[in-house]
Deep mutational scan, measured.
Amino acid sequence: MEQGTVKWFNAEKGSGFIERENGDDVFVHFSAIQGDGFKSLDEGQAVTFDVEEGQRGPQAANVQKA
């Protein structure tokens, strides 16, 4: 798993970007967020995640709040 920080997340659209510790920013969709309840992330929040190849390039998967 990688570690990173939420660069921004739009709760209305359900997507945003995570700033990786090593590498380019990666797209995140709300469906990749693990946990119960409303799936959203806050700017500056620390997260851990896997990276998968999506239709438009790398994207975060199995996102967990650190």
Rank of each mutant, 00 (worst) to 15 (best):
M1S: 14
M1R: 15
M1D: 08
M1K: 15
E2I: 13
E2F: 15
E2N: 12
E2Q: 14
Q3S: 13
G4F: 02
G4C: 08
G4K: 01
T5E: 04
T5R: 14
T5H: 12
T5C: 15
T5Q: 07
T5L: 10
V6H: 03
V6E: 00
V6P: 03
V6Q: 02
V6T: 03
V6Y: 00
K7C: 08
K7F: 04
W8C: 13
W8A: 03
F9C: 05
F9W: 15
N10R: 03
N10H: 06
A11H: 13
A11I: 11
A11L: 09
E12H: 13
E12S: 13
E12P: 05
K13N: 09
G14I: 03
G14W: 02
G14K: 01
G14Y: 03
S15H: 15
S15W: 15
S15I: 15
G16E: 02
G16H: 00
G16D: 00
F17L: 07
F17I: 09
I18F: 01
I18V: 03
I18A: 01
I18G: 00
E19F: 12
R20F: 06
R20S: 06
R20V: 08
R20I: 06
E21R: 12
E21M: 12
N22E: 08
N22C: 13
N22D: 10
N22H: 11
G23I: 03
G23A: 09
D24G: 13
D24T: 14
D24R: 14
D25Y: 14
D25W: 14
V26Q: 02
V26E: 00
V26C: 04
F27L: 03
F27E: 02
F27D: 00
F27T: 02
F27I: 02
V28E: 02
H29C: 09
H29F: 09
H29Q: 05
H29Y: 06
F30P: 00
F30T: 01
S31D: 03
S31F: 06
S31W: 08
S31H: 06
A32P: 00
Q34I: 14
G35L: 08
G35R: 00
G35T: 09
D36A: 13
D36Y: 12
D36S: 13
G37D: 06
G37I: 07
F38H: 08
K39I: 06
K39H: 05
S40K: 09
S40L: 07
D42K: 15
D42A: 14
D42P: 07
E43P: 15
E43I: 15
G44P: 03
G44Q: 04
G44W: 04
G44S: 04
Q45C: 09
Q45A: 09
Q45K: 03
Q45R: 05
A46P: 10
A46G: 08
A46V: 13
V47G: 00
T48N: 08
T48W: 14
T48D: 03
T48P: 01
F49R: 00
D50C: 14
D50L: 13
D50I: 14
V51G: 00
V51Q: 04
V51S: 04
E52I: 15
E52W: 12
E52H: 11
E53T: 11
E53A: 10
E53Q: 13
E53C: 14
G54Y: 07
G54R: 08
G54I: 05
Q55F: 13
R56M: 10
R56K: 11
R56Q: 10
R56P: 07
R56A: 09
G57T: 05
G57W: 08
G57E: 01
G57P: 07
G57H: 05
P58E: 05
P58F: 10
P58K: 10
Q59P: 04
Q59Y: 15
A60N: 00
A60Y: 02
A60T: 03
A60M: 00
A61R: 12
A61P: 00
N62Y: 06
N62A: 04
N62T: 04
V63F: 01
V63E: 01
Q64S: 10
Q64R: 14
Q64Y: 10
K65M: 10
K65E: 06
A66G: 10
A66T: 12
